[in-house]
Write a protein that binds this DNA or RNA. Sequence first.
DNA 1: CATATATTGTTTATATATAAACTAAAACAG
DNA 2: CTGTTTTAGTTTATATATAAACAATATATG
Lengths: 164, 164
Amino acid sequence: MADKNLFEAAANELPTEDYRMRAWLALVGCFTNIERLLRRRFSKAFRAGLPRYDTLTALGQNPDGLTMSELASMLMVSKGNITGVVRRLQEKRCVRQVKSRKDGRVQVVTLTRKGKELWQQMHQEYRDVVGEVLLGLTKSESSSLTKSLLTVQEKIEMAGQPKG
Amino acid sequence: MADKNLFEAAANELPTEDYRMRAWLALVGCFTNIERLLRRRFSKAFRAGLPRYDTLTALGQNPDGLTMSELASMLMVSKGNITGVVRRLQEKRCVRQVKSRKDGRVQVVTLTRKGKELWQQMHQEYRDVVGEVLLGLTKSESSSLTKSLLTVQEKIEMAGQPKG
DNA sequence: CATATATTGTTTATATATAAACTAAAACAG
DNA sequence: CTGTTTTAGTTTATATATAAACAATATATG
């Protein structure tokens, strides 16, 4: 007993006509598997989770810096969350926080040189893992999958950012 | 600046031929959006995260109970994680833990009546949210998406469970 | 200008997640 | 039977996540 994972088991119990739930369960299973691999590789290589990579990426793409709120918005997480992630990155000297002179509430966050280097290493690792995991996927399969996913995305009524 | 989310921005920076990364970014964006909606609805309705629902579902599908290790394996999380989730469910009188008489190390976890009721409520909420979110998806779109995702799943070499 | 309101970011309480170290019990080896 | 190894589960340290309450600062409005 307890042979297959929950999502496969749940899909097996679905009535045939329940095609939307079936799609969602397939999405969960697929994402969860790949994401876990990525997380494990990042944990081993950098002793860091994916949120740090996401944060470094956002900052790398915006060399003039981003405020805490902008980071929260781009990464689609709460502001309280960003406070912690940026604090840990700062303790590792990977980012710099400077208080804005125009607006005393605002912190502008930028990458340090060390942060840029870490970002590049992480980026390579990220690309490697995704490449390995999706190795079996042909160009046409990838394109069809991407197209389906973007269709779903478009149809989701975006329900705002998290609070706080 | 900081207009669109990170995954869209990252996809825009990709070379055209990078179809696998593009598919992965679409997968991340799609999953993350829907999962966040689900989580928010669960948080509001039950003051509980999705892992509790997953755990109740696994137990609901196995009325004879599951051990902590079986739960960890089915939900694909670490054993230390299960310890916490089950403890919180037990504090709410939703599950029962009984030490096995055959093997003094093993805990067998089963649903209480209260747990069954909570599970059913959560199940309804889960179905509602997925239905709403994927409302715009036709049967044929759903099927094509499911098929693509299962193809990916098959091609992923499953890399074992987390440790601990 | 003074007061009301909104915005930025942190803090707190809680839930989730892992890896690694640990305990207890079972299985196995000689 | 005794010592070794394996297995089941918990504990600890750390990272991530949210909502809600809060502080400090801007902005808007009379």
